[in-house]
């Protein structure tokens, strides 16, 4: 037993080498099953990385994410910033010669990361949470409170503070939120119930 935990410990660090355990294959299979995408087909041509508009900002480029999924490196992948930086532009999906949808795989990886409460990119996670809270409350996005909430939660208090008055002046900010929050909350409730 003790040995197994040590093994586990090893696979959980970011240190080299990658240790390939039976666990590793399970992670690969889970990603394939949940995303419905044949990540195992990836032959590392790198076209996704080559065309990715945000690859420059990623800690692990898309093609390497695919490779690490193939090698079952769950922690490395789920703790990466890259999965949060993927903007979902689907350039990779459009051009993948192996008909894999890496953008969809990224969606799955984000879901799995949240389940394990990994949020390597605080900004994006905070923004997503604020966004979803916002539509739960109002039914539609209400920009003034969305930005406010994001700024408060992320600690970037003054981000875009200069734009508020200008936007207001240009009539670009709505004054009243929508009142369809209940419709969206019902859906969240149904999903929440299902989850637990």
């Amino acid at each position: 037993m003790k040995q197994a935990t040590e093994r586990e410990q090893l696979t959980r660090t970011d240190e080299l080498p990658i240790v390939l355990t039976e666990e590793a294959r399970k992670f690969t299979e889970e990603v394939i099953r949940r995303s419905g995408e044949r990540v195992d087909w990836c032959y590392q041509c790198g076209k996704c990385t080559a065309g990715c508009p945000v690859a420059f900002a990623m800690d692990i480029e898309p093609s390497r994410i695919m490779r690490l999924v193939q090698l079952g490196q769950g922690e490395r992948v789920l703790k990466s910033k890259a999965i949060w930086l993927c903007v979902g532009c689907q350039t990779c999906t459009t051009r993948c010669p192996q008909e894999i949808d890496p953008a969809k795989v990224m969606d799955t990886l984000r879901e799995m990361a949240l389940e394990k409460e990994f949020a390597a990119d605080k900004e994006v996670v905070t923004f997503f949470r604020s966004f979803l809270d916002n539509i739960q409350r109002y039914g539609r996005v209400f920009e003034p409170t969305l930005v406010l909430q994001y700024n408060l939660r992320s600690g970037h208090l003054l981000q875009d503070a200069d734009k508020g008055p200008l936007m207001l002046f240009k009539g670009k900010l709505p004054l009243r939120p929508s009142r369809n929050g209940a419709i969206v909350r019902k859906i969240f409730d149904a999903l929440g119930g299902r989850r637990q």
């Binding site: 903007v87 979902g88 990224m106 969606d107 799955t108 984000r110 879901e111 949240l114 923004f127 997503f128 966004f131 979803l132 539509i135 039914g139 539609r140 996005v141 929508s178 369809n180 419709i183 969206v184 859906i187 969240f188 149904a190 999903l191 299902r194």
Partner: peptide, 20 residues
């Protein structure tokens, strides 16, 4: 009474939510 389609944040973290 249309509601938000969920945009990126919904599908990025919950496939079912984005469909719903």
């Amino acid at each position: 009474d249309w509601v938000c389609c969920g945009a990126s944040p919904a599908h990025a973290v919950n496939h079912l939510l984005s469909l719903a």
